[in-house]
């Protein structure tokens, strides 16, 4: 099993390496000169040459790539083409802000999703189940920005005007100092992620409840509450863990649209701004950052899968 995990680990590392080449090569296709873009049209040739030297633009491609890649490991993400400032300084607070959003969304959607899915499975075919499955089917279909806009329409503009629709933390202060501004973005992410968890939890829970060992426990006279919490739920969690991990990985990309919608000062908003300004250095750094989160979460999902799969307990030596 350790061998299997190690193999999965090295595959992830190689994938990230290839992605980094892909992301870096993309910049070579760009027309124009980054140094010119930073300094503007009026720049003197001397300043241009100096900046090119400073940004290592004269080095051969492989050397520039290695320099960039090495920089990523020590937190040096290069210089923003649009602002001329360090990308790392630009991103520090934003990464924290985005993490707050992701962690809050995960912390709410996972337990609630598991509970609603279990409830739905236990009341199979009845009104509560129909409502839960119907709503999650609709929510699963809706694009994230549609859910967000509907929430804004309901809670901050027309029906109830109770929650702020945009995030307006003064510069220098952190987003979590204004919890009311976090509610709508987090709720949007929760509503996007949760339907998948509910549906998967319902399906596996129904399978588990129909299984022999649950029937056995019931026949033995184990109280129903204990049957569910001790016998059924732990067995249903393992397959759901993978879906949860996939949804968490999705959050890494999903925050892009949601942050843009709520003007939330996080990584996603920065990425959209950078793409609009064609600020290549920032796009590169953010794409790598999001890819890394995505790959790591997927890796964790697979490791959970390997650890919880009884068939693989003796595996790894095949």
């Amino acid at each position: 099993m350790a061998g299997l995990i190690f193999r999965r680990l090295s595959i992830s590392a190689i994938i990230l390496l290839v992605v980094s080449i892909l992301v870096f090569v993309a910049t070579l296709l760009l027309p124009g000169d980054p140094a010119q873009a930073i300094l503007g049209q009026q720049a003197t040739p001397e300043r241009l040459a100096a900046l090119r030297e400073q940004m290592n633009l004269n080095d051969p491609f492989a050397q520039r790539y290695l320099h960039w890649l090495g920089g990523l490991f020590v937190g040096d993400f290069g210089v923003s083409t649009a602002s001329g400032g360090s990308v790392g300084a630009l991103l520090g607070d934003r990464i924290a802000a985005s993490l707050v959003l992701m962690v809050a969304a995960a912390a709410i959607s996972i337990p609630v999703g598991i509970l609603v899915g279990t409830y739905s499975a236990l009341r199979r075919g009845r009104a509560g189940d129909h409502a839960a499955t119907g709503i999650s089917l609709v929510l699963a279909a809706l694009p994230d920005f549609v859910i967000g806009i509907v929430l804004v329409t309901l809670f901050s503009t027309t029906v109830f005007t109770v929650l702020p629709s945009v995030t307006l933390a003064p510069p220098g202060e952190q987003v979590w100092d204004y919890p009311s501004q976090l509610i709508l973005p987090v709720l949007t992410l929760v509503l996007v992620v949760m339907p998948y968890i509910i549906r998967m939890m319902r399906t596996t829970m129904i399978e588990v409840l129909d299984s022999g060992y649950v029937e056995m426990a019931r026949l033995k006279g184990v109280p129903e509450r204990q049957v569910i919490w001790r016998h059924a739920l732990p067995h249903a969690i393992a397959p759901v863990a993978q879906v949860i991990a996939i949804q968490l990985a999705w959050l890494a990309g999903g925050i892009v649209v949601v942050e843009f919608l709520f003007r939330y000062p996080g990584v996603g908003q920065a990425l959209v701004d950078a793409v609009t300004n064609r600020d290549v250095q920032v796009v590169q750094a953010l794409a790598m950052l999001i890819a890394a989160v995505y790959v790591v979460v997927n890796l964790l999902a697979d490791i959970v899968g390997i650890l919880t799969n009884p068939k693989l307990r003796t595996g790894g030596t095949r």
Binding site: I15, L16, V18, V19, V23, A26, A249, W250, A252, G253, G254, V256, V257, L271, V272, V275, V283, L286, A287, I290, A291, Y294, V295, N298
Partner: peptide, 12 residues
């Protein structure tokens, strides 16, 4: 390894 939206933004 890249979320769809990030891949799209990179291409754009």
């Amino acid at each position: 390894a890249l979320p769809q939206i990030v891949f799209a933004l990179l291409a754009i």
